[in-house]
C-alpha cells in the first residue's frame, strides 16, 4: 500500500504530533519501508484463526470496587509542569 503525504499528515494529527516539512519525507519513507515489510502478515496461513489479544487465558480479573486514597498528593503535584494551590493548571478550555 502506498502512503501519501496527506495520509501521513492526517495520521500525525490523530497522534497529536506536528511534523516539520523536512520530517515528512523521512517519516513517509520509513513508514513505507516498514509497511512493505509488514505486508508479510498477509501471506501467513491464518485462515480460520481467532485473534489473540494477549497470551493469558481469556478471563476477567475482578476486585472489589473500593476507593483507595493516595496520600502523597505533594509527590504527585511535584511533577506538575504548572500548578496553582493544590491543582494542575491548564490553559482555558472553553473559549
Amino acid at each position: 500500500m502506498k502512503v501519501s503525504k496527506e495520509e501521513i499528515l492526517h495520521i500525525a494529527k490523530l497522534a497529536n504530533l506536528n511534523l516539520k516539512e523536512e520530517e515528512i519525507d523521512t517519516y513517509l519513507l520509513h513508514l513505507q519501508d516498514i509497511l512493505n515489510f509488514a505486508n508479510i502478515v498477509n501471506n501467513a496461513p491464518i485462515e480460520g484463526l481467532e485473534e489473540s489479544f494477549g497470551v493469558n487465558e481469556n478471563q476477567n480479573v475482578f476486585r472489589k470496587d473500593e476507593i483507595k486514597v493516595f496520600e502523597n498528593t505533594e509527590a504527585l503535584l511535584a511533577n506538575a509542569p504548572e500548578k496553582e494551590r493544590n491543582m494542575f493548571k491548564i490553559p482555558k478550555v472553553i473559549q
Binding site: 495520521i11 502478515v41 498477509n42 496461513p45 484463526l49 481467532e50 485473534e51 489473540s52
Partner: peptide, 21 residues
C-alpha cells in the same frame, strides 16, 4: 496508522491472527 480506520483489518487484525498462529 495500523489502528486507523481502513487499515485496521489489513494490519492489526491480521497481526492478532498471526499471534494465534
Amino acid at each position: 496508522y495500523v489502528l486507523s480506520s481502513g487499515y485496521y483489518d489489513a494490519y492489526y487484525k491480521k497481526a492478532q491472527q498471526v499471534r494465534t498462529l
